[in-house]
Design a protein around this nucleic acid. Structure first.
Lengths: 223, 223
DNA sequence: CCAGAATGCGAGCGACCTCTCGCTTTTGTC
DNA sequence: GACAAAAGCGAGAGGTCGCTCGCATTCTGG
């Protein structure tokens, strides 16, 4: 199969110059900024082009439509996340204290979301259409599976239904804590992160309390 | 001041016939349905009129603009909520067990939101413009103040900053639990309500543990 | 019963948004 | 330097949506 014109739907639609790659990065950055402040639907392609300092026509030189911008942005973020924190929830040494497991997982994901606030904006808005919602669902399912795996190793004797419910609950609590965390800066942000950890640990502690080799540790506030 | 034409901006803009009141209720019901399925911004006034079985012109006979529909809907819901559950968070007998206080407050608000899913759609979407966001903020502030008052009576010796943070956290957790609850039906819904109560109680328990006349009660799962 | 107000209609106006198209300018290659 | 491909432009086509306006119909008070 020769690399003719009709092969353009796969991988490399056409040859890009270095300038083009730079423009793409620039446009994605601009899109991230606009999506963050206005959300996906309210963000106009003209506004994204203006933010990037190019004409609307130039934007459509590199993206077939508005949705593709969000898709590409989401894909790149997903890759970055997998590269940086792919193992965040994977290793589940049953001997790890609950505080430590929860704390490190929360820290990793909070850090990523603080560095890339678009991620939350894209994955949280109820206004995203088709394809992006699919990405959202895929991510949610992946995360849910990870959490479920982690919890099932911590809570071996729990029914699948309870496990699924508890996992969803943990994800929901994390999302709520993330929203509060992103809404604050500096020391206050740190405090919210700590509160989120407290919530999760205290929620899960009674469920794993029967595990061998664990002592009771209850610190009412952060020491 | 006579009740002339220029007095129409207050209270009763003009005289309504019974048919008009019926149409208004009908339009609001249709709007609630459309808002629920598509969100506020994506909901078109033509779609609302179609859902109500009237022409677009008729809709604008009763509402000056799209925003006013949401405002009126929000106002009516707020009134219903105040009438039905206004006292839900108010009475704070310090002798009340934490489980009971949290449980009844959660039950009341969950019940209201289950009966009126529009409420969540209107108050949750990040796409709502100006005035509705104000209503949202007002409600949030009110609820926050109530929670803060309730917690301050349970936790007398806590700094105002910690109190505010804990209150916000509780509200955020409630919102997360509400979303999960609304996403399920029947027995599963009940289970999520119970999990939400567990989360809140376990989160707050260590903070009120020093209160006199309380015994430790830790039930790993719902009995 | 009738005058005037309230209700009801639906084509269509203006604003905005996504995306296109013909064109010029820049870049890489021989 | 010549030439093709890529990058860049911006007016505007085509479409949707909020909302209006002129006119027809139904109600209500005197």
């Amino acid at each position: 199969m020769p690399d003719t014109a009709e092969n353009q739907a796969k991988e490399q639609p056409r040859r890009r110059q270095a300038r083009g790659e730079r423009r793409i990065a620039q446009l994605l950055e601009a899109a991230a900024s606009v999506f963050c402040t206005t959300g996906y639907t309210a963000a106009s392609t003209n506004a994204i082009a203006r933010e990037a300092g190019v004409s609307p026509g130039t934007l459509y030189q590199f993206f077939p439509n508005k949705e593709a911008i969000a898709i590409e942005l989401g894909d790149r973020l997903m890759h970055q996340m997998r590269d940086a924190y792919g193992e965040a929830l994977a290793p589940v040494d049953p001997a790890t204290p609950l505080e430590e497991a929860v704390g490190s997982a929360v820290d990793r994901f909070i850090a990523f979301n603080c560095e890339h606030p678009v991620f939350f904006a894209l994955m949280h808005g109820p206004d995203v259409p088709g394809r992006i919602a699919e990405e959202h669902d895929a991510l949610h399912t992946t995360l849910l599976a990870r959490v479920e795996a982690l919890l099932s190793s911590l809570l071996p004797d729990t029914s699948p239904a309870d496990l699924a419910r508890t996992s969803r609950m943990c994800l929901g609590l994390y999302k709520a804590g993330l929203e509060l965390t992103l809404g604050h800066e500096g020391a206050e942000r740190e405090a919210y992160v700590q509160e989120l950890k407290n919530v999760l640990v205290r929620y899960l502690e009674p469920l794993v309390g029967e595990r061998p080799g664990r002592e009771e540790a209850s610190s009412p506030r952060t020491p």
